[in-house]
């Protein structure tokens, strides 16, 4: 008998997989892969704040993470910092804030720790539907801006002369990353969320010969990893986060070997 919890997890996981698959391609090709890492720490601080204030941690975390994503962009643009330095600054700040809150208000430490490792099979129905809805919104925003995002990622200067507002698209991309990271935090946790956005895209780059194939393969690999990982976790009673990331790493290894043999 398949439980409704498992089916709901598959639904949310599938929506998030598509969002991660598309978004990851842009992050990897823009050399922004580590932004997921930085934003996950900010999202963790958001969860800690939400728990400390007795507010819905996921909603609060989305708000904090969106604010953090804008700070990263501002630091890159105005503080003359390389992107990875801006990300390191903010991720340290996020983690420091979470630790501080945990030491002040000691009663939510165990719940906060669950966000380090994530587990989609332990989430309630309302949160699952919220996650699915947000993932669909991210997906729609990417698809609506797909040609402009592709042009900007490939050739910023020519895209700018074509009248594309780069700063607006940069902001959109980093904000979509923020939302996706918060959702990913619940599924695979802070420690593995970067893999969720980066590994399927990296795997697609091993095999794809054009951009359309890259997007398709990245979504496919992301779906296989997340849906397969959730199923394995449910059937074999494994941690879902580890199962998802291991599956995606196996797909990457296969892709890498196929590319080497070509």
């Amino acid at each position: 008998m398949i439980s409704s919890l498992f089916l709901r997890a598959l639904l949310a996981g599938g929506c998030l997989a598509l969002a991660c698959g598309l978004l990851g391609v842009f992050l990897v090709l823009r050399r922004d892969a580590m932004i997921s890492h930085g934003l996950s720490h900010v999202a963790f601080a958001g969860v800690a704040l939400g728990l400390a204030l007795n507010l819905m941690p996921v909603v609060f975390s989305v708000a904090v993470c969106l604010a953090g994503s804008i700070v990263i962009l501002r630091l890159k643009e105005q503080a003359r910092l390389p992107g990875d330095t801006a990300i390191a600054l903010l991720s340290s700040a996020g983690l420091a804030l979470a630790i501080l809150l945990m030491s002040i208000k000691r009663d939510f430490g165990a719940e906060l720790m669950s966000y380090l490792f994530g587990d989609i099979l332990a989430i309630g129905p309302s949160e699952i539907y919220l996650a699915a809805g947000l993932a669909v919104a991210v997906l729609a925003a990417i698809l609506l801006n797909l040609p402009r995002l592709m042009f900007m990622t490939f050739d910023r200067e020519a895209a700018s002369v074509a009248g594309i507002r780069l700063s607006r698209l940069d902001r959109l991309l980093v904000m979509l990353s923020a939302v996706t990271i918060v959702l990913g935090l619940r599924i695979v946790g802070l420690l593995l969320v970067t893999g969720l956005t980066v590994i399927p895209a990296a795997s697609a780059l091993q095999l794809a010969r054009n951009f359309r194939q890259t997007l398709f393969l990245s979504c496919l690999f992301s779906l296989l990893s997340i849906m397969g990982g959730i199923t394995l976790a449910y059937v074999l009673d494994l941690p879902a986060s580890a199962a998802i990331i291991f599956l995606s790493l196996i797909i990457f290894s296969l892709g890498y070997m196929i590319r080497k043999r070509r």
């Binding site: 040609p147 042009f151 990622t153 490939f154 002369v161 009248g163 594309i164 794809a208 054009n210």
Partner: peptide, 30 residues
């Protein structure tokens, strides 16, 4: 306006893009 910048061919070699997609990106964005 059509614009071709200096070193346009120095694009990211790992970027998977076909000839048609290079042009489509511009056409669909303009």
């Amino acid at each position: 306006i059509g614009y071709i910048q200096q070193k346009a061919t120095n694009f990211d070699p790992i970027f998977p893009i076909s000839v048609a997609e290079v042009i489509a990106a511009s056409l669909n964005s303009a």
